[in-house]
């Protein structure tokens, strides 16, 4: 490979001389740079005031999009959230609204 790409993200139709040997990807977790937020039709909206910080929303998210820092829920990663609503249902305290995207 003669060229270095950001985060090992080889663009589509990269010349064969420059792509990675054997299709190996050497930056682990670089899917982080792929945004799946635009898959969303519905959007969970976190209501801070109703949140009891039970964190039950954290493990149920298929897209690792519940942001927890220092054992506290701090927000939603909308870059990756696909709007499945699992967190909304998992919350025992009604701390999420689930609204159509764009509203």
């Amino acid at each position: 490979m003669s060229k270095k790409f950001d985060h090992d993200i080889i663009p589509a139709y990269t010349p064969w001389q420059e792509t990675t040997p054997g299709g190996v990807v050497t930056e682990s977790g670089n899917a982080h740079y792929f945004k799946t937020g635009d898959w969303r039709a519905m959007k969970p909206v976190w209501k801070t005031d109703q949140c009891k910080q039970c964190l039950l929303c954290f493990p149920v998210c298929p897209d690792s999009s519940i942001i927890v820092e220092n054992k506290k829920m701090t927000g939603i990663d909308y870059d990756h959230c696909k709007g499945c609503g699992v967190c909304v249902k998992a919350c025992p305290f009604g701390a999420f609204d689930f609204v159509p995207e764009g509203e």
Partner: peptide, 28 residues
């Protein structure tokens, strides 16, 4: 559960599983 959230996330978002899929939840 709270303690377990301090562990690093070893499966990142940005994968292409369906919205609401059970598999990544299991994997995480």
């Amino acid at each position: 559960l709270k303690e377990s959230t301090t562990k690093p996330e070893r499966l990142t978002g940005g994968h292409r599983m369906c919205a609401g899929c059970g598999a990544p939840v299991v994997v995480r």
